[in-house]
Design a protein around this nucleic acid. Sequence first.
DNA 1: ACTGAAAGCCGTTGTCT
DNA 2: AGACAACGGCTTTCAGT
Lengths: 154, 154
Amino acid sequence: MKGAYSVPEVDDIDHQVLRLLREDGRRTFSEMAERIGLSVAAVKRRVDRLKELGVITGFAVQIDYAKLGWGIEAFTELRYPGTTPVAEIIRTATDVPEVQAVFTIAGDPDALIHVRVRDLGHLQQVIDRLRRAGNVTGTKTLLVLGSWTRDVVD
Amino acid sequence: MKGAYSVPEVDDIDHQVLRLLREDGRRTFSEMAERIGLSVAAVKRRVDRLKELGVITGFAVQIDYAKLGWGIEAFTELRYPGTTPVAEIIRTATDVPEVQAVFTIAGDPDALIHVRVRDLGHLQQVIDRLRRAGNVTGTKTLLVLGSWTRDVVD
DNA sequence: ACTGAAAGCCGTTGTCT
DNA sequence: AGACAACGGCTTTCAGT
């Protein structure tokens, strides 16, 4: 679970740094320093500070999973009895390795789950497993045909 | 839109490299070389090859957007008339800057859209804008209360 | 395909402004 | 907070196996 509130001490230069690292997370400090017009050491200190503040939570490679044989992507809406604690909802979902992300939702459904699987038979298995885990009262699965993700936000 | 099919020539060592880069996208080649038991040059060549194959699509920083004041996250299901081409669905959604990702769906709804906004008033504006763009026949918005993402998949 | 070595570039740290 | 300089480590490339 992510958390916490807006950090005021993130200025325009910090946003420039974040923007550059969103475009390419392996950019060198020297390249960023040149673009921003700051010394290498100053850029490094800002990145270190953004990590300490928890604004930067990490760095990751971006992968085309379809090219690795994980061609099917889906979202499954899960419904639980009103008495089910959120912690249990998360636990039952995160136990399934094909689950990429879990979003707990205000209202109906109670959770939205992002899954990645090899094929439709595999998807069926994962949905069955989600239904059995915890006391799920209902599911609805949205099969993803195509996706688009924004490269850079700012 | 992502695309294409499984690449057979990705072996176990490639998967080890991908795993290490998923944990930390800024890991050095020397560290990966030591862990895998290969020379630095060999690891670099594998990463270069995975980029050429399109398995690695890039590197990105991971950000806690709540700490930047973008505290509200939601998924909006969009419904369109049966005649609407997929390209138009994507275009209308990607035009809205708060839209982080668009997933086109088989069945009902026609699309699932991931949005990030500053507050609930802002969310209202974004939903209104999505409804007006294109000829949307209906929306349902799922407000995210909490989220969990898998660190490493393998 | 991988190794090993060489050259240049980058990251990191300390000191000064 | 940032600049600058210096050292150590890393990336990159190429010849060799």
